[in-house]
């Protein structure tokens, strides 16, 4: 869609290994509009991080296209134009390994400024202080510290300041809070929300924490075994999930009160584990765990279809609005006949 800041089209990333080809990302398409917080959710091994790493350019995709502001950026980082590198930034999961332990925060923050020639030699010091102010760290003190001398949450704030140093428009957040204490998580999330408003940022937020998405995402996409299952605006996603996997995930969010329990979809027992992406079973990737799997699910991989505008799902059992009256079984039956 024109006007989208990022659009990923049928992205695939396969890693050849001794055991076979790992289909880490296997045909993912989505697009993000400016100002959005797009939540990409999935369990470990679903390929969400690989998707982000393809977008940021850690390695080129096996196939598919990545468009950023109308520019095709399929290449890995070493072949990307510099302005894209400044405009599209990432915050990694573990700030312990994303900040060089041998360099001071001042040195760490000066790298993007030097590389992208932001500010004069003198102006950079002021800019670095402003960046630390932005992430609510006392600049004069923290500029001259090493990363190991500060706490995990503070490190992540420094990593965020470094990402923002080049005035990016899209920031990929690869589980930015999952390595942190719960008490610090909330602080980081509030900071992210505030900075998004102040700096007009767009986020691609990767996480396995669904309840977090409810608070900050504008749209949520669920990923399973290298493919997207369902994309929906946040409210719709939580109120009327369609895909059995989404329902399974939502019903397994732990809650404390009965009122919250009542908000959740009816209990879908979560069984089994994500299959190995080396030998993906035929048909729908989720059929081995799906409580509603029919015969067709074991043979044919479903296509992404629109349930409503901006709500897409990839499931044979999906009910389109115009077929609301039909019985589920007859829909399936019809499809099976067509396939035969």
């Amino acid at each position: 869609m024109p006007g989208d800041i990022l659009s990923v089209d049928n992205l695939r990333k396969h890693f050849p290994t001794k055991e076979g080809v790992v289909r880490a990302v296997d045909g993912v398409s989505f697009s993000i509009a400016p100002g959005e917080t797009f939540g990409l959710v999935g369990e470990s091994g679903s390929g969400k991080t690989t998707t982000a790493q393809c977008i940021i350019g850690m390695y080129p995709p096996t196939s598919g296209d990545i468009w950023f502001k109308g520019e095709r950026i399929n290449a890995a980082f070493d072949r990307r134009p510099k302005h894209v590198k400044g405009d599209l930034r990432i915050v990694f999961q573990d700030p312990g390994s994303s900040l060089n332990p041998k360099r001071t925060i001042k040195q760490i923050l000066s790298v993007p400024l030097q590389v992208h020639r932001i500010g004069s030699r003198r102006g950079r010091l002021a800019r670095m202080k402003a960046l630390l102010d932005m992430v609510e760290l006392p600049a004069d003190e923290y500029l001259y510290k090493h990363p190991q001398a500060i706490g995990g949450g503070e490190r992540q704030m420094v990593a965020l300041a470094r990402a923002l140093a080049t005035n990016p428009s899209l920031v990929l957040l690869d589980e930015p809070t999952s390595a942190l204490d719960v008490s610090v998580q909330a602080k980081i999330i509030n900071l992210l929300i505030r900075l998004q408003k102040e700096l007009d940022l767009t986020y691609l937020f990767i996480t396995h924490d669904l309840s977090l998405m409810r608070n900050i995402a504008t749209r949520v996409a669920i990923m399973y075994l290298g493919k997207l299952c369902e994309i929906a605006p946040t409210a719709e996603f939580f109120e009327s999930p369609v895909h059995p996997y989404t329902r399974m995930l939502l019903s397994s969010i732990p809650v404390v009160s009965d009122e919250e329990e009542a908000l959740k979809p009816r209990k879908v027992l979560s069984t089994g584990e994500i299959p190995s992406p080396v030998n993906v079973p035929p048909g729908c990737g989720f059929q081995s765990r799906c409580p509603e799997a029919a015969d067709v699910c074991r043979r044919v991989d479903p296509e992404m279809v629109e349930v409503s505008r901006s709500h897409q799902v990839r499931c044979h059992r999906e009910r389109r609005p115009d077929r609301a009256g039909h019985a589920e079984a007859s829909v399936l039956h019809e499809r099976e006949e067509r396939l035969c």
Binding site: K85, I90, F92, P112
Partner: peptide, 15 residues
């Protein structure tokens, strides 16, 4: 990841 970050930021090989 700190090396990866420098690469993605566009830092030179020498850096």
């Amino acid at each position: 990841f700190f090396v990866r970050e420098a690469e993605l930021c566009g830092a030179s090989r020498a850096h």
